[in-house]
Amino acid sequence: MAGEVDLCLRAGRTTALVGESGCGKSITAAALGGLLPRGMSRDRGEIRWAGGGERGPGKGLAYVFQDPGECLDPVFTIGSQIREALPKEDRGRARERMTDLLRTVGFDEPERVLASYPHQLSGGMQQRAMLAMALAGRPRVLVADEPTTALDVTVQAKILRLLADLQRKENLAVLLITHNLAVVAEIADEIHVMYAGRIVESGPVEMLRAPRHPYVQGLLKALPRLDGAERLEGIEGSVPPLGRRPPGCRFHPRCARSRAVCAEREPPWTACGPGHRVACWACGDGGWA
């Protein structure tokens, strides 16, 4: 599904994993917490934590998903759902911690929210409640899988700002999974772009000003812009489904710059700036781009 993904998450930094549907970004995130669906397994590689050991959710890793309405249980109040997520040592002063958590995620009236059922909150408030729940276990890593995609644009901006604040205040390592490059540009420090199960380009977020990989360049050109040209430049074709992924560079059938070698062998990594690397024959050493 996803092949050889190297990620390094640092405290106080936001790392974005970007790609289109089916590229393996959510599976990568699930593998981190040992949440792979039945029938799928991690067959190679390891997950190392500073300080040693492998840890799953609840012990240092927490998740926030796309649709808060789906994740919250409709028959319990927000308060009772957050209480469940509190670690044992906090149970004694549960109310105090819960109101603190809700204040942290920007609620002015935490008491009222604690007593509310999910349907009584708007989408943005539900996502804040999810964030509070994720923070309840004092995680070191927060995985946010398309955290704002289901929300309205103006609400989206507020949740992103909140996520950036939390990361700074709580010194969290955030792994942001998204398909939205503008969201990445707003809050990520590092970015990894995936295509059909592999990372094709990685670097500091500023690399989006001048990406090297033809796929990443294509993605940026395909975005409608407020100051854009009359006609958009899409990328011909579509993402190959699982099981029909081409050999060599997986992007080569859609790539205007591909040559024979691209269809034969997987491209190696080429460094192209501090922390910036790309897997592409055309832009590698001895390449033609």
């Binding site: 289109e20 490059l181 993605l219 395909a222 006609r231 899409g234």
Partner: peptide, 10 residues
Amino acid sequence: DVSVQAQILN
């Protein structure tokens, strides 16, 4: 997907 959106808009 983003890469397909542009095709449909065009």
